[in-house]
Amino acid sequence: MKHLLLYSLTNRTELLKMKRLKEDSQLVGNVLLEIGSMLMSSGASTHRTRLTMERIAKGLGYGIELLITQRALMLTITEKDQQHFFSRLKRISPHGVNFRIVSGISHLSWNVREENWSVAQITEELHRLKSLPHYPRLVVLGLVGLAGAAFCNIFGGGAIEMTVAFVATVAGLFIRQEAMKKKFNPYLCVFFAAFTATLIAGLAEHFQIGKEPDKALATSVLFLVPGIPLINSVTDLMDGNIQNGMVRAMNGLMIAFSIAMGLFAAKMILNF
């Protein structure tokens, strides 16, 4: 009788321990997927995402296997000496580039590895990173407008052309932000922005403002150039993540095509 009681007691603690382990690996798996999807949507390359997730998992004492695609993450997490594993698929929602998150998660991964952060600390830090502010809208508009003027200068435009490029870029970016807020298709947002910018720069060309108005026209859409998809695509291809690289390249080409369509539409209206 006594033996039986003892047996059932140990069995019960075993069961409890197993249950706890299972819950732990679920918790860790969900946190890792969250980290991975945040990284992918804020503009990190595939290799960096994989490296960071593996580093954090190792720091917490788990092994992981990963499948990373552009729109979804698949993760299997196993404990070192246990039979338990946990698998989950998570969609990656496109949010737009945010290097503050990339930088913050990089710090976080080193903290996990060197200062043995717990899962609770990681979740807290992720909340903090998500709530970090963007730059004020006016600052963004002004500085991106300056970037447009800078492009115009690089291509040999004078002060008047630079002003035209500044105004066109600010208007284009403003339209893009508004379209993003209204949740239009992202390529359509780019189209609207390119259309607005070209229309303004084209009007300047129409009324012969400045010496070389075509330079302002060509540089007013450069703020839309898909730099991150294209550069990340080459990085991914170099790392051997051919599939992701091709997807990113195609995405970049689609954006370039939307810019061209916006340009084309505005030019047609102006030549009419």
Partner: peptide, 24 residues
């Protein structure tokens, strides 16, 4: 030199668009 200066300004424009940390 002036072109390089403006290239730097263009880089800052994109950096702000990508929401980089202020110290960078």
């Amino acid at each position: 030199l002036s072109k390089s200066f403006w290239a730097g300004i263009a880089a800052i424009g994109f950096a702000i668009l990508f929401n980089v940390p202020r110290r960078t």
